[in-house]
């Protein structure tokens, strides 16, 4: 069975590219650092993680779920420009954006099933970054009162994650990377990290 075009995405996710996955006979979205995808369709969401973390969250009753892929913005050692509170604020927004979209589309907060992956200390130059991301996501989930129903966090490995929000199933592989793959993941994460650092964590104000 193949489909000629991917199922209709939820509003706001039209720009996420989806392709047909023969192995799973489903359409799937591949998300990059800084992105997230939420769906009510029977499709998959895939990503590759180095030091970044992904939360896979769904409501098993309404079958709506999503996956994000983010890291906290930390400057180099000794640089106070991005302090810990600004940095965790960014992580909160990354989580809240996705959870809000799940709730807005019919999910219920008390039903949410949460699985988390990634945060590998993959690269000597980004040693502590994975651990900081893991600590953040654990703290966040405790504060919000969510239990983790499955996890694979930390360690020295990059990971490939495929999530099926319809069933809640996750296929995860700790990957032995070729040098080229590793360079590619590193390049993307560093690019993403640099973009976070050049963007101030600030919003807009309207006074009426």
């Amino acid at each position: 069975m193949t489909q000629t075009s991917p199922p209709k995405p939820l509003r706001g996710f039209e720009d996420i590219r989806r392709t047909w996955h023969y192995a799973y006979k489903k359409y799937g979205a591949r998300i990059m650092p800084g992105e997230y995808y939420v769906t009510r369709n029977d499709e998959l969401i895939a990503t590759t993680l180095g030091s970044c973390v992904s939360a896979c969250i769904r409501d098993p009753d309404t079958k709506i779920g999503g996956m994000n892929h983010f890291m906290l913005p930390f400057k180099g050692q000794g640089d106070a420009a991005m302090d810990a509170s600004a940095s965790s604020r960014y992580g909160n927004f990354a989580m809240e954006h996705m959870i809000n979209d799940i709730l807005k589309n019919g999910g219920r907060r008390e039903n949410l099933e949460v699985k988390v992956f990634g945060g590998g200390n993959v690269l000597p130059s980004m040693t502590a970054v994975g651990t900081k991301n893991v600590n953040f996501v654990r703290d966040y989930l405790v504060t919000e009162g969510f239990e983790i129903s499955a996890e694979d966090l930390g360690g020295p490995y990059p990971r490939k994650v495929v999530y099926f929000p319809e069933s809640g199933r996750v296929l995860m592989q700790r990957v032995a990377m070729s040098r080229r793959d590793e360079e590619e993941i590193t390049r993307r994460e560093i690019e993403y990290r640099n973009s976070l650092e050049s963007k101030p964590v600030g919003g807009e104000i309207d006074l009426f």
């Binding site: 809240e96 964590v201 600030g202 919003g203």
Partner: peptide
């Protein structure tokens, strides 16, 4: 007023 996230203390 309306403050949109991500906000800062300055906002």
């Amino acid at each position: 007023f309306l403050i949109s996230k991500p906000f800062t203390a300055q906002d």
